[in-house]
């Protein structure tokens, strides 16, 4: 099914925000829709978006490539994105990230064996006073998790696992 058919209502709402002759502005919100289910934008969706907004596929791809929160490759269902920029690192973010790698048995950039979590190190998330912190990017959007410990993080992952079990 084309993106336009699948998210008819959402796309209509998005397009209403911008002048009709400037519908290209809708490319960013529509890209979020396009990667909602699989966590990345597939080729067919790129073609749909290009057609819908009268831009080229290359332009769509260049936007995906430019912005950190769009992805063109499959990863874990949730991307766990830990900030380890200067202020967070001054509050232990590097140690937190290392310990998390140890606990999950993966390196930064890798995905847990069950395909649930991909661990990433990212730049500033504007929560410098609440480090260690990370955001999760998944099917339900982006959520912040602040003042985190390893225990709290492992609990969160367990909760995601349980939710996953219920869905299946």
């Amino acid at each position: 099914m084309s993106l336009e058919k699948k998210y008819q209502k959402e796309i209509k709402q998005i397009l209403a925000k911008y002048p009709p002759e400037q519908k290209r502005s809708a490319v960013m919100p529509i890209l979020y829709l396009a990667q909602r289910e699989e966590g990345y934008v597939n080729k067919a969706a790129m073609q749909d978006i290009a057609k819908l907004l009268d831009i080229t596929e290359t332009e769509v791809a260049s936007i995906i490539g430019f912005y950190s929160l769009y992805h063109d490759e499959k990863a874990g269902k949730y991307r766990m994105q830990v900030c380890n920029d200067l202020p967070c690192a001054l509050r232990g973010a590097d140690e937190f990230l290392n310990n998390l790698c140890g606990n999950l048995g993966i390196k930064v950039g890798e995905t847990t064996a069950d395909g649930l979590v991909t661990l990433e190190a990212v730049t500033c998330l504007a929560a410098c006073d609440k480090a260690p912190m990370f955001q999760t990017q998944g099917p339900d959007g982006i959520k912040y998790h602040e003042n985190m410990t390893i225990d709290k993080t492992l609990e969160l992952i367990e909760a995601l696992k349980r939710a996953e079990g219920e869905v299946k």
Binding site: Y67, L69, V122
Partner: peptide
């Protein structure tokens, strides 16, 4: 209206922000 960027510090620069809001690279 709210409009979400997608992870690019440079979009805090006002003309990059406008480019981004127009649906281009920031």
């Amino acid at each position: 209206f709210t409009h979400l960027g997608a992870g690019a510090y440079i979009c805090g620069e006002e003309t990059a922000l406008l480019e981004s809001l127009e649906g281009k690279r920031g």
